[in-house]
Design a protein around this nucleic acid. Structure first.
Length: 277
DNA sequence: GGACAGGTGCGGT
DNA sequence: ACCGCACCTGTC
């Protein structure tokens, strides 16, 4: 296995993995993290002044971890927006938005709908165990061909619940689907296209845009961001209005701000003062 | 046992 | 176009 290191400034492994953007990771007993993407594996070890990455796919994970983006610059700009964003940045400034596989994001976030992180991880693990190819380091994420062939009962048996039909239908549709219809489209068109998939609503579509298509100017609204909005801004608005509000406030980095706020709310939501704006 | 958390599809308006 | 409800599983 090969390895490389990267600066710890503005890159925190735990923050990046635990802010809700990725489900296939595992904290090991020595405090390092195992990360899986497609059929690839890396182990991330945080040392005194660097993060050391062990992997057979160096180029893939250099890109995956988004090490070439200047996050310090973004954090500086976002911190200046308001005291709330200063707090959120201080909490989550080590977060990178990962460059994840589009198909894996579509399937994973269909599973995420109306679901909690722990169970999402369990379902995805069972999905990989059932249908993924063997790799030297565990099971790969299954191909859409394999997923399309699997009986509906497979999806029920891994605990997907009523999402079973969404998963099977989407996998079947993806078999002969030209992903450039999404990758080449502008954000609004790609979003509209994503909404035509069964099991993909506004929130899941925004997550796929942000994490699978790297569109930074979207703001997924889930229950945590609703809490933030209601605590610091106003009561009684629809999800789409909350999303528009934050998109206008944050512009091109709305998605990154969403990650900071999500992480901040989950970490300190119980104790943080609601008076700071 | 019963309430609740977690987004989307669908049928009704 | 919008609203209300059912949907599956786990947890308190």
């Amino acid at each position: 296995m090969q390895q490389f290191t990267t600066d710890k400034d503005c890159f925190n492994v735990a923050d990046t993995l635990e802010c809700g953007q990725i489900f296939r990771y595992e904290k090991l007993s020595d405090g390092s993290y195992a990360v899986f993407s497609r059929d690839k594996y890396a182990r991330l070890v945080t040392e005194e002044d660097v993060v050391r990455v062990f992997t057979d796919d160096v180029d893939y994970f250099r890109h995956f971890l988004d090490l070439d983006t200047n996050y310090a610059q973004k954090v500086q700009r976002i911190s200046a927006i308001s005291p709330l964003m200063k707090q959120a940045c201080d909490c989550g400034k080590g977060i990178h938005i990962l460059n994840q596989d589009l198909t894996e994001m579509i399937i994973s976030f269909i599973i995420s709908a109306n679901n909690n992180i722990k169970r999402i991880q369990l379902i995805i693990r069972r999905l990989c165990d059932a249908l993924g190819e063997d790799t030297p380091y565990g099971k790969a994420f299954p191909t859409v061909e394999k997923m399309a062939q699997a009986p509906l009962s497979l999806y029920t048996s891994i605990g997907a619940g009523y999402r079973d039909v969404y998963l099977k239908e989407t996998a079947q549709r993806l078999v002969n689907y030209d992903l450039s219809r999404l990758t080449q489209a502008d954000t609004a068109s790609a979003r509209k296209e994503l909404l035509s998939f069964k099991g993909v609503g506004p929130k899941v579509a925004d997550c796929i845009l942000l994490f699978g298509l790297r569109r930074g100017d979207v703001f997924p609204v889930d229950t945590w961001l609703k809490k933030v909005y209601h605590a610091y801004f106003e009561q009684g608005h629809k999800d789409s209005e909350i999303s528009t509000f934050f998109c206008n406030l944050f512009g091109q980095d709305a998605g990154l701000c969403q990650q900071y706020l999500f992480y901040f709310q989950r970490k300190y939501g119980q104790t943080a003062s609601n008076t700071v704006k």
